[in-house]
Deep mutational scan, measured.
Amino acid sequence: EVDTLELTRQVKEKLAKNGICQRIFGEKVLGLSQGSVSDMLSRPKPWSKLTQKGREPFIRMQLWLSDQL
């Protein structure tokens, strides 16, 4: 189980620290539009309420944070 709230907090922190905009992060890392990324980072759904497809971007965020992506 992933703590989506904590994960998105860490992602936002790393984006800010490295000067990466959400649009680029969305396109290059998540394969999503800036609007989708913005929504996901500001209002993450609980892991238990996400479908497999809904969980994929959060898994990619985890990999990106651990420099595996």
Rank of each mutant, 00 (worst) to 15 (best):
I24P: 00
E1I: 12
Q34Y: 11
R23F: 13
A16N: 06
G54K: 02
L5P: 10
S48E: 09
R9I: 07
A16L: 09
E6C: 05
L30R: 07
K12D: 12
L7Q: 08
S38G: 10
C21G: 11
F25K: 01
L65E: 00
G19D: 11
C21V: 07
E6D: 15
G19M: 04
G54R: 02
K14H: 13
R60S: 02
R55W: 01
E6Q: 04
K45M: 11
K28S: 09
L5C: 12
V37M: 05
Q52D: 14
F58S: 00
K14I: 12
R9V: 08
D3G: 05
L41W: 05
L32F: 08
G26T: 05
F25D: 01
D39R: 02
C21P: 14
T4Y: 02
K12I: 04
G35W: 09
K12S: 02
L15D: 06
L50G: 01
I20R: 02
L41F: 10
L7G: 12
S33L: 11
A16R: 14
L32D: 03
R23G: 09
V29Y: 08
S36D: 15
K14M: 15
R43K: 12
G54D: 15
P46D: 03
I20G: 02
K14S: 07
V29T: 04
V37R: 05
R23H: 10
S66P: 00
L5G: 11
Q68F: 09
A16C: 09
P46S: 10
R43G: 05
S42W: 02
L50W: 09
P57Q: 12
T8S: 09
V2A: 10
C21Y: 02
P57C: 08
K14Q: 13
L5F: 14
R60L: 06
Q52I: 11
L65H: 01
R9G: 08
Q68L: 11
M61Y: 00
D67S: 10
R55I: 01
R60N: 02
D39S: 11
D67M: 05
Q34W: 15
R60M: 02
K14A: 11
K17H: 02
E6G: 09
L65C: 02
M40N: 02
R23Q: 10
T8G: 06
S36G: 03
Q62K: 15
G54M: 13
D67H: 04
S38Q: 14
V11E: 06
K49T: 12
E56I: 15
R60P: 00
E27V: 07
L65T: 00
D3E: 04
R9K: 10
G26S: 12
A16H: 03
L32S: 06
Q52H: 05
V37N: 02
S36N: 12
L15A: 14
V2R: 12
T8Y: 03
S38N: 14
L32I: 11
E56W: 03
L65Y: 01
W47D: 01
F25S: 01
Q52W: 06
T8N: 07
M40P: 05
K45N: 04
G26L: 07
K49S: 10
N18I: 09
K45I: 10
K28P: 01
L65I: 04
P46N: 05
S36C: 11
T51E: 02
Q34E: 05
